[in-house]
Amino acid sequence: MAIELEHYLALGALLFAIGLYMALAKRNFVGVLMGIELMFNAVNLTFIAFSRFVSPATDVTGHVFVVFVITVAAAEAAVALALAMLVYRNRETIDVDRMDLLKW
């Protein structure tokens, strides 16, 4: 059985689901970030799969978009981890369910 576009799309959906679960349910802030990175990877994989199977051979728009997504993901990871350090310094924890200053 040859590998078609649907294989990559299903794989991307499963990877996105794993990342979504981590981002929603993990207690540690770094775990949430790892989930977000997994979701970025799933979306990038889908972009590249569409670029390979749907767009014409001279068109690399999907690749360029993935490069931009990776750039923004790197910027996001740097800022988010700096925020995690800051929260830890002020609150002595980075568990997301204990960041409850706004909860009455």
């Binding site: 349910a25 993990k26 207690r27 540690n28 770094v30 775990g31 995690a84 350090m85 830890y88 924890t93 980075i94 568990d95 997301v96 369910d97």
Partner: peptide
């Protein structure tokens, strides 16, 4: 971050 928050548990 310290050892206390190295746990990967769920909420």
């Amino acid at each position: 971050t310290p050892r206390a928050s190295r746990d990967n548990a769920e909420t």
